[in-house]
Design a protein around this nucleic acid. Structure first.
Length: 654
DNA sequence: ATAGGGTTAG
């Protein structure tokens, strides 16, 4: 419990309202002689109160200080009361209650006291009240200060009302002096960015007479978030003094835009320039490593984080980022180790772990963790439901998924979004209930987006239904005119149905549109930690002939165990022998052969692929895991497949 | 007073 220090509580403080009285109607202040020592004492007392208020962490403490303020006759002292209101709103005390009362007890509030209240509303809402108060303050003849505008811009940013923001902007120019204020300019930039008016923000920035690193960073982040890393980099390179926050914005920006190599380069340059690193920087680097998906980098960044003292036990955000990273680097076990070791967990940690399990086909683990989470006070959010629904869909748990979907709003207040509908379409579609899936789409309360139709199209591929596929594809071509994957998927479905005319029609269409098929590519890490890359039919590897021989041997052994090439996986109208040759040239098979050649017996082989693994390769991997007695992990563009003992973790759903 | 952070489906 805190107490006021004895020094001040025993000193008798003159009543300030008696010392300095100001008649409301008079413009001149009535000066009363105040002994200098007393004045000084009062100033000291006020600043003491300010610092005591600053240290308050509970409402009861603030109430005690308030009582003390009243006892000492400072009930009209705007300076101290401003701080009081600020602390109250900081502790989330509703502005409308206690803070507003404090304000109304002051007869002649100064601009700072007005602003404290305006700011309170700008933080908590109702945001329009900020503007109402500003107008009242002006009509009562009180002039604004720069904080007043910052609070107003904050309110405009909160309601994304750029119209109002422009009016406030006009006020700053009209009243004079404020438009060139550094702080006002910075909050104005923030407001325009929040409202999505990047070019207005840039204009404010360009016209500011004085800028600091905050102004620059605000814009850099805005460019990064809009996906324009080139502008962000250009701005950053012109920034005279780059601090930790600005560097971090760049590292994170690269990571958020799927450019992990540049993120890591940037982090390297940041360290070279001698700027400090904190946990926010580390989180950016971790998400860059998650994109790389390579175990080597995962372990490296974990060590870096530990060296700086930001481990998963100390920081939830670092921990959650590490969970996601390890899941994406192929190691759910390690992800779960991190999860288990965390002191504090929140909805991010749980959701990341659930999504991680789902990604690796561990539906049971995902569901179990979800139910564990429900026993805590952490509430699931929309991402958590995405995780459990995809887990259900990969495990074919149709009824369980339906139940979750039906209750998510009623029991947890999470309204299903189009993304959740996409999960449900996926769930029904994978279970072969294509008509049910189509019906669900037709009853959606919102417009179905590409993900929804894409899920249906994917299901049509599994079950070879060209008619429903056509419906889905027509919507997709409209929604995603540049999505080459949809054209390829549809053409594959036609090929499986042996509708070669439709296949060639699509192929011509694709050529007209100037689409180029993304070449399939797989990569595998050798035991020395070198990443080897293989394209389909690639014979450029120095050990190419050995790889070819190993693959042929493997094929013979698999055939002896009953493996048959799946000719339906080839979508060209070719002879069976040609088809077999093409299948054996798939990049993931080359990568597997190299992995077998270059690794020690008993080691797991981890292969990564940029496209979805085909059915033939999937069956091939299953069989190979059994025949060779090796665990094989393949990460395709969608998820992880753990092949072991002739079976895959995805349960043939992918 | 103002700037940088983690999870999302085909």
């Amino acid at each position: 419990m805190f107490t006021l220090s004895r020094k001040f509580s025993t000193t008798s403080i003159p009543n300030p309202s008696k010392l300095l009285q100001r008649h409301p109607q008079s413009t001149t202040t009535t000066h009363i002689f105040i002994p200098f020592s007393q004045l000084q004492q009062r100033k000291l007392f006020e600043s003491h109160l300010i610092s005591v208020l600053h240290g308050c962490t509970h409402l009861t403490q603030i109430k005690q200080v308030h009582a003390h303020i009243l006892r000492k006759g400072l009930d009209q002292c705007c300076y101290v009361l401003t701080k009081l209101i600020r602390m109250l709103t900081k502790l989330d005390v509703p502005v409308h209650s206690y803070p507003r009362l404090v304000f109304h007890q002051v007869k002649y509030p100064n601009p700072f006291l007005w602003t404290a209240l305006i700011r309170g509303y700008a933080t908590q809402g109702p945001f329009s009240e900020s503007v109402v108060l500003y107008n009242r303050m002006r009509s009562e003849g009180t002039g604004p200060v720069s904080f007043t505008f910052s609070a107003l811009f904050k309110a405009c940013g909160a309601v994304l009302d750029v119209g109002l923001g422009r009016q406030v902007h006009a006020q700053t120019i009209l009243i004079g002096g404020f438009a060139s204020d550094l702080y006002v300019g910075n909050t104005m930039i923030d407001m325009y960015v929040k409202c999505g008016f990047l070019e207005c923000a840039r204009k404010v920035f360009d016209e500011m007479s004085e800028r600091d690193v905050v102004s620059w960073t605000e814009l850099i982040v805005a460019y990064a978030k809009s996906g324009d890393m080139d502008s962000a980099r250009e701005l950053f390179s012109g920034l005279p003094v780059k601090d930790m926050v600005a560097w971090t914005a760049m590292v994170t920006g690269y990571a958020q835009n799927g450019r992990p190599r540049e993120a890591l380069d940037c982090f390297q340059r940041m360290q070279d320039s001698g700027v400090k690193t904190d946990e926010v920087t580390i989180v950016g680097v971790i998400s860059a490593c998650a994109l790389l998906g390579v175990a080597k980098y995962a372990n490296w960044v974990r060590d870096v984080a530990a060296r700086y003292g930001f481990g998963p036990t100390e920081n939830v955000v670092v921990g959650s980022a590490l969970i996601d990273m390890y899941s994406k680097c192929g190691s759910v076990e390690e992800a779960y180790n991190i999860f288990e070791g965390m002191k504090e967990r929140n909805v991010f940690s749980y959701s990341s772990m659930i999504v991680g399990f789902a990604m690796h086909g561990r539906a049971h683990a995902a569901m179990q963790l979800f139910h564990e989470m429900l026993k805590t006070e952490i509430r699931p959010n929309k991402v958590t439901f995405i995780g459990v629904l995809t887990a259900c869909s990969h495990a074919g748990l149709v009824e369980q998924g339906r139940q979750l979907f039906a209750t998510m709003e009623k029991c947890f207040g999470v309204a299903p979004s189009a993304d959740h509908y996409a999960c449900m379409v996926d769930l029904l579609g994978r279970a072969g209930r294509l008509e049910d899936a189509l019906e669900l789409i037709e009853t959606m309360p919102m417009e179905p987006h590409g993900g929804v139709w894409g899920a249906l199209l994917g299901a049509c591929r599994i079950y070879g239904n060209p008619d429903i596929a056509q419906i889905a594809a027509n919507h997709l071509f409209e929604l995603e005119p540049n999505g080459i994957g949809n054209y390829i998927l549809l053409s594959n479905i036609y090929a499986s149905a042996r509708r070669w005319d439709d296949v060639s029609r699509l192929r011509i269409l694709m050529r007209e549109k100037g689409f180029k098929k993304n070449p399939g590519c797989s990569w595998v890490e050798s035991k020395e930690g070198v990443v080897h890359e293989f394209f389909a039919g690639d014979m450029n590897h120095p050990q190419s002939s050995e790889i070819k021989r190993a693959l042929a041997d493997l094929l013979d052994r698999l055939k002896a165990k009953g493996y048959q090439p799946n000719l339906g996986s080839v979508t060209y109208d070719l002879s069976d022998d040609e088809k077999k040759r093409i299948l054996m040239n798939h990049s993931e098979k080359l990568a597997l052969a190299y992995g077998l050649l270059s690794s020690d017996a008993g080691c797991t082989i981890k292969i990564m692929k940029n496209l979805r693994i085909c059915e033939d390769c999937h069956a091939f991997m299953c069989s190979a895991s059994q025949v060779m007695g090796r665990e094989i992990v393949v990460r395709d563009n969608m998820r992880f497949h753990h092949f072991s003992d002739g079976a895959c973790s995805c349960g043939n759903f992918w």
